[in-house]
Design a protein around this nucleic acid. Structure first.
Ligand SMILES: Nc1ccn([C@H]2C[C@H](O)[C@@H](COP(=O)(O)OP(=O)(O)OP(=O)(O)O)O2)c(=O)n1
Ligand SMILES: [Mg+2]
Length: 1102
DNA sequence: ATCCTCCCCTAC
DNA sequence: TAAGGTAGGGGAGGAT
């Protein structure tokens, strides 16, 4: 296969209706306190700006930053809309380079030249221009809203951001809005700026970003204008039934079609229904035989689910490897005892550095290859493995393709795609049924070969493993060196393994070799099909230059979106120039660092082959269709039985349970496009303690079922709306004593330390028993308890026996925690009534426990169905009630006018004098809080210092002499208050007192002018500055001022080094200088990043 | 700081 | 017909 820009692994090619995403629904109905960004917040900013010392600003305006010299021209060309370019379907024929007809939204929102100047994302010229721009913008908004053009006030209070390509166009929407009293926000610096998002299509990253916002289709606006009043936005919620990668349902042509189609479906769901499903579901008999209501549904489902098979196989293989290792280790010990020389260094665990040799071994299109073992006539043809066989389903089968042959992939068919879509790409496609047992069989042979050569093995999946072959390869290498062979011993060894596997399985595997896992995985991609490739460190730069971020293992679409949005590119060659800090800012700390290292070919991840499980779960999100709560209840208990079996198989008991519910999104059709699929859903998770008999951890199906069922009742959902149910058990502990697991144990052997066995000899293969029959034995503790009352009764009895006060207290506690599995009597008229199961609590004995907060009456739920948004069902919000000053108060998402005064206690806790605080203007108060909290977070020790941070308004007007007259540090000898504390290495800064950020900054530079800045301190300032820019409008000016001040300080000490680059300083002074300048450039870059996102320009420090 | 909980995301 | 599961890494944000 030719190497194209887009590799086989690069997932792209989506179309509108079903998009890649494992976000199953767009949650657009969340009720939040959206507060329109008000003009007041803008004026606060001006107010603050005028508070600033003008002389200071003047002085700093004269300073020039190197990065700014070419700054106005080098603003990154923005792709404001990353969604559309993703919508191009894959080209049908093999390997055509894609011209990438990306559809970019214009950066300017109107033809009006005023708009272009004012609204445009132009670069900042300078400070003054920025302010001018901002004021002009406010004026325009003012006039549009209040005077000049508004014809009606239909959209009064509505502020809208338009995402991506829309029909009608952005310009039309803007015009519609402002003519009718609404506000149009051209940039979405933060979510609280707007009340609604208008869109016709969302990338999954945007879906995530907007998940708690009101996302509507443009019809909301157009129809409202027609109706001459504001229609309920809920009737126009934008919803997508999103699915992971290749599951697009669109034909190759007409990229713009999804949007168009969507617009043609007025008033509801963005995704269509499935007529076949509707027809089938209309038949009660069919329903009772084929959906979750059918007897034995769960068992049949798990027997046929490929994804379940993959997950279960992985767990089994990991277990096999663990056992093999334990055996190998005990053999080794044995040998050592016998004083036999182990012929290799101790097994490769923890071996670090580049000395390792890692092989990543992976079957080529595994399921197909396995299927073709007995169908040799199909070799070389486009073949897929899926449930639908032959001509079943015709051209409209929603059956998913588990695996496509390479010939099929040449047509653009991918693993995970629906058959109907594949048929569009290749009408002659051949289908092959699943053969799970054969997969297991082949896999075991494969693992057997690997383990016979390995120091260590990590089971990645049924068809894939990571193998540490350091020992074997070094032995070969020594041999090769003595002979002077030009061959790469690692590659030779890989070919030998490939041959052995081929011999044992009649299937091809490919092997990637390198000194770390990351590169080994990359090597495999290039090795396929049927090859081996060794990547060495020298290959890294050239290799990485060709790759996209999503080619790296663990990086997928969400990172791709973030990278494009925040860093302007997803190509590793572009990302290579970004600093660690910049990448972390964009992708998160760990992820950013992982990427930074990956680009350089660095990955010190160790093989993990002995991790213990932390949770056990079972879920079904297919075919869930209930007519009654009884059916749902039965299902829950059946599922609990499955969970019990799985717990027993690994001899574990659990202490907490989480119920996961997928519920049809109100705007999604009853039958989604995918046959019996879940469609667009709201997802709810709720965790409670799992209390077994005697308060112990348990695996008991009844206990699990009881808890799960109670949780489900507490949701009070209409059973007809359920689309997915899952039970997860956490806080696992080993079951002691005999537990009948019913699991068939298999054994494999690791490479013997001395005598090597022929491969495949050690495999006593027996087919897996997919769900071992429930032996109804919940372990030693419960097996004796079968005749005891159920937990709910025990609990009730205990409750009843308690003195009233104590009981009240308990009930209160439960209510507070909102996680009691024992809510007592079902609420009035529940949609899923509690059906008493014998022996059940008589209703008259219903405890006085009030229904929990979430157990609301149906009317109320339907009135406010969205209060439980986004799965995170917090029955009683832990902290959401009154406004409590905490980190969220400085969070950018908080609307400006949601600022409430913190309590005096809060203030004292921050070392702020409440009385002084009260006198400050609100904008200044907020800043004070920000700074004080950051300082506290950073490690202030208020109790120790005993000094109180006294805040004065004038603090925002830095003493003129301080800022005007260098050298700055000389100006306040008493000021620094930086206590350095000897730590393990270097010195750590603690801020015990500060008056203002500039002072702090200066003290920092002073304190470390002989050492260079500490990473943590840089991080601290960077965070503060980024936060400033991101948050309230006042923050920008502050950030600019602080950065300018920093620049002044650096120039003061190290001006000579400003324009030098990294290279070649010997002098310690120079190193320190360079460290400071590097810190400065990094931080500046990070701020620019945020500034670009918010304003479309970068900060000028002139 | 460090933990925990509730997500989202990723891989096969 | 069709079988959209599952565990763990990681981030955000709150509790301790
Ligand atoms: N969405 C997916 C992805 C994979 N699989 C199954 C079928 C595959 O055969 C097997 C292994 O997945 P791989 O990612 O290794 O893909 P293949 O082995 O099919 O192809 P190759 O490894 O050659 O790229 O997992 C699946 O059922 N559904
Ligand atoms: Mg494979």
């Amino acid at each position: 296969m030719p190497v194209l820009r887009s590799t086989p692994f690069q997932t792209r090619a989506l179309t509108g209706m079903e998009r890649k995403a494992n976000v199953y629904r767009l949650k657009a109905s969340a009720v939040q306190d959206f507060i329109t960004a008000t003009l007041a917040s803008g004026s606060q900013s001006s107010e603050y700006f005028e508070d600033e010392d003008p002389a200071f600003l003047n002085a700093l305006d004269a300073t020039v930053l190197p990065g700014d010299v070419q700054a106005p021209a080098n603003s990154v060309p923005e792709n404001n809309d990353e969604s559309d370019s993703d919508d191009n379907p894959e080209p049908p024929p093999p390997g055509q380079p894609q011209p990438q007809p990306s559809l970019k939204r214009r950066r300017y929102d109107g033809p009006d030249p005023v708009d272009e100047v004012i609204y445009g994302a132009a670069e900042f010229g300078n400070f003054g221009q920025y302010m001018k721009r901002k004021r002009a913008k406010l004026q325009i908004q003012n006039s549009e809203i209040n005077t000049t053009t508004a014809e009606t006030q239909i959209f009064k209070g509505v502020t809208v951001y338009v995402n991506g390509w829309t029909s009608p166009s952005v310009q039309e929407i803007r015009s519609l809005l402002v003519r009718n009293g609404g506000i149009f926000e051209p940039y979405l610096a933060k979510h609280s700026m707007v009340t609604h998002i208008v869109t016709c299509a969302l990338t999954e990253a945007k879906m995530r970003e907007f998940k708690n916002m009101k996302v509507v289709r443009p019809e909301w606006l157009t129809e409202s204008v027609k109706a001459r009043y504001l229609l309920p936005w809920r009737d126009f919620v934008f919803v997508q039934d999103a699915r992971p990668a290749p599951a697009s349902t669109q034909a190759p042509a007409a990229p713009a079609q999804p949007q168009t189609a969507q617009l043609q479906i007025p008033r509801y769901a963005a995704d269509a229904s499935n007529p076949n499903a509707q027809r089938a579901m209309a038949d009660a008999q069919w329903r009772n035989a084929n959906t979750s209501a059918a007897p034995g549904f769960i068992k049949g489902y798990f027997e046929h689910s490929r994804l379940h098979f993959l997950s279960a196989s992985k767990a089994q293989l990991q277990e096999l490897v663990r056992e093999a290792q334990a055996r190998a280790e005990s053999n080794l010990e044995q040998k050592e005892k016998e004083n036999l020389e182990p012929d290799s260094p101790a097994k490769g665990k923890g071996r670090a550095g580049d000395g390792r040799v890692i092989m990543h071994c992976d079957f080529d299109c595994f399921f197909v290859a396995a299927g073709l073992v007995t169908r040799p006539q199909m070799r070389g043809k486009p073949v897929v493995v899926c449930h639908s066989q032959g001509a079943q389903g015709g051209s409209s089968s929603t059956s998913e393709i588990a695996c496509a042959s390479y010939e099929a992939r040449a047509f653009g068919i991918k693993n995970g795609m629906s058959l109907q879509q594949a048929r569009k790409l290749c009408p002659t496609i051949l289908t092959v049924p699943y053969e799970f047992e054969r997969y297991t069989d082949l896999s075991l042979k494969f693992y057997t070969v690997l383990m016979s050569h390995a120091d260590d093995v990590q089971a990645v999946s049924i068809d894939e493993a990571l193998v540490d072959v350091t020992t074997a390869v070094s032995r070969l290498r020594r041999a090769a060196e003595s002979v002077g062979s030009p061959h790469d011993p690692a590659k030779d060894f890989a070919e030998r393994i490939r041959a052995e596997v081929k011999q044992a399985t009649q299937c091809e595997i490919s092997i990637g070799i390198s000194h770390n896992i990351l590169l080994a995985r990359l090597a495999t991609r290039r090795a396929k099909p049927a090859g081996a490739l060794h990547i060495v460190a020298e290959d890294v730069p050239a290799l990485m230059a060709t790759l996209d971020i999503t080619n790296l293992w663990g990086f997928a679409s969400s990172h791709r979106e973030k990278a494009m949005e925040k860093l302007g590119s997803t190509a590793l060659k572009d990302l290579a120039s970004k600093s660690r800090a910049v990448l972390s800012e964009a992708l998160g700390k760990k992820t950013g660092e992982k990427l930074y290292n990956a680009i350089r070919g660095i990955d010190d991840t160790q093989l993990s082959s002995d991790k213990q499980r932390k949770s056990v779960s079972a879920e079904v999100n297919y075919g869930i269709r209930f007519e009654s709560s009884e059916a749902a209840e039965k299902f829950i208990f059946d599922l609990a039985g499955e969970v019990e079996v799985r717990l027993n198989e690994i001899k574990m008991l659990g202490r907490t349970i989480t119920l996961k519910i997928m519920k049809r999104d109100p705007s999604a059709p009853v039958e989604p496009p995918k046959f019996l699929g879940h469609g667009a859903c709201e997802v709810f998770n709720k965790q409670t303690p799992l209390v077994g008999p005697g308060g112990r951890a348990t695996s008991d199906a009844k206990a699990i079922g009881d808890h799960a069922w109670r949780i489900l009742q507490s949701f009070n959902f209409d059973p007809k709306e359920l689309r997915g149910i899952g039970i997860q058990i956490q806080k696992l502990e080993p079951a002691v004593g005999p537990v009948n697991t019913g699991a068939n144990q298999r054994t494999l052997n690791f490479k013997p330390m001395e005598v090597r066995r022929p491969p495949a000899a050690a495999v006593p293969v027996r087919p897996a028993s997919p769900a071992a029959p429930n032996n109804n034995n919940a372990g030693p503790s419960t097996s004796a308890d079968v005749s005891l009352p159920s937990i709910e009764e025990v609990d009730q009895d205990v409750l009843d026996a308690l003195p009233p006060e104590m009981r009240q207290e308990l009930e209160d506690a439960w209510r507070r925690r909102s996680e009691s599995p024992f809510p007592g009597k079902a609420p009035a008229a529940p949609l899923i009534p509690h059906v008493p199961r014998p022996p059940s609590r008589p209703p008259s004995r219903a405890p006085s426990i009030a229904p929990q907060s979430a157990v609301v009456l149906p009317q109320r739920r339907s009135a406010q169905p969205t209060r439980m948004h986004q799965g995170a069902l917090r029955l009683a919000p832990r902290s959401g009630g009154g406004y409590v000053i905490d980190k969220t108060s400085i969070h950018p998402n908080r609307p400006p006018n949601a600022f409430l005064r913190p309590t005096d206690a809060d203030l004292r806790n921050l070392n702020i004098d409440p009385e002084v605080f009260a006198l400050l203007p609100q904008a200044v108060q907020r800043e004070q809080l920000t700074v004080a909290r950051l300082i506290k977070t950073r490690g202030a020790l208020p109790e120790v210092s005993g000094e109180r941070l006294i805040l004065k308004p004038k603090k925002y007007i830095p003493p003129p002499n301080l800022f005007r007259q260098p050298p700055p540090y000389a100006k306040y000898p008493e000021k620094p208050k930086l206590r350095t504390q000897g730590k393990s290495k270097g010195e750590k800064v603690f801020f015990t007192e500060t008056d203002d950020v500039q002072g702090l900054l200066e003290a920092w530079v002073n304190a470390f002018k002989r050492f260079g800045p500490e990473e943590k301190d840089i991080e601290f300032f960077a965070k503060f500055l980024v936060q400033s820019v991101e948050s309230a409008d006042t923050g920008v000016e502050r950030a600019v001022a602080v950065v300018k001040w920093w620049l002044v300080l650096l120039r003061r000490y190290w001006g000579d080094y400003e324009h030098f680059d990294e290279l070649g300083y010997d002098a310690e002074d120079a190193k320190v200088a360079e460290a400071w300048w590097k810190a400065f450039r990094d931080v500046k870059e990070r701020i620019d990043l945020v500034a670009r996102k918010k304003f479309g320009g970068k900060l000028s420090l002139r």
